[in-house]
């Protein structure tokens, strides 16, 4: 099943240049692991970065720069060049969570200690950027996540199952980029639970007063 919901150039570019904060970058990198189409576009951006490096007006290195570097090389002559990272042997089939997400979570989906939410379950993924909230959500088959609006943007990347957001169906690898103008009610398709990665830059602001009341207690 091929991916139909991709990333826009501006998000890919912020990831390629290094501007995008860690939380958003986890979603972008995980989408790229699943999406050859976006990867090809991303590679063009890195190629552009290399070409721009060629065009930079060179700033002469310090006069003793090469000597200093040589001294460091001497210290490390015994060291073998680091080999490319070996593949982690799959532990019984293909993981549901691709890298880098699997390392952030610490296991594949089987090992996740889900915390329950009203009508869903979540697993918080800590990051060091201080500006995003990153979590896995598990929405039961056929069930909606509570209706909400956002104060900022939200990336939602489907990892298993699917959700439908009005007209559009999002399946494994599809990513939805929403901003504060979008009111949406994602509903898991009836065939299976939907597991997705959700990145937001502000706590979600649920519409329902009941959910809003319990929000501080649940830490969502």
């Amino acid at each position: 099943m091929s991916i139909v919901h991709h990333l826009d150039d501006d998000v890919l570019l912020e990831y390629a240049t290094g501007t995008l904060a860690e939380g958003w970058s986890i979603a972008v990198a995980t989408h790229l692991a699943l999406c050859p189409h976006c990867r090809e576009r991303y590679e063009l951006m890195e190629l552009t970065g290399g070409a721009l490096l060629d065009t930079l007006e060179p700033v002469p290195a310090s006069p003793d720069s090469w000597t200093a570097l040589m001294a460091r090389l001497q210290d490390e002559t015994g060291a073998q060049p680091a080999a490319a990272t070996p593949a982690v042997p799959p532990n019984g089939g293909q993981p549901v969570l691709p890298e880098p997400l699997r390392s952030y979570v610490g296991s594949d989906v089987d090992g996740i200690a889900w915390k329950s939410l009203p009508g869903a379950a979540q697993f918080l993924i800590p990051t060091s950027d201080g500006e995003t909230m990153v979590r896995l959500l598990r929405i039961p088959a056929g069930k909606p996540v509570p209706e909400h609006t956002h104060r900022g943007r939200e990336f939602t990347l489907v990892l298993s199952g699917a959700f439908s957001d009005g007209e559009d169906v999002f399946r494994r690898g599809d990513i939805e980029v929403a901003d504060s103008s979008l009111m949406h009610t994602p509903v898991a398709t009836p065939d299976a639970d939907c597991i997705c990665l959700a990145v937001t830059d502000a706590p979600l602001k649920f519409k329902s007063w009941m959910v809003r009341m319990v929000q501080p207690m649940l830490g969502i």
Partner: peptide
């Protein structure tokens, strides 16, 4: 500058989807 990690994908990961 940001003292932050930059997560990247891993082409050797078994879940990685290669181009056709």
């Amino acid at each position: 500058y940001r003292k932050a990690n930059r997560p990247g994908f891993d082409p050797n990961d078994p879940a990685f989807v290669p181009a056709d």
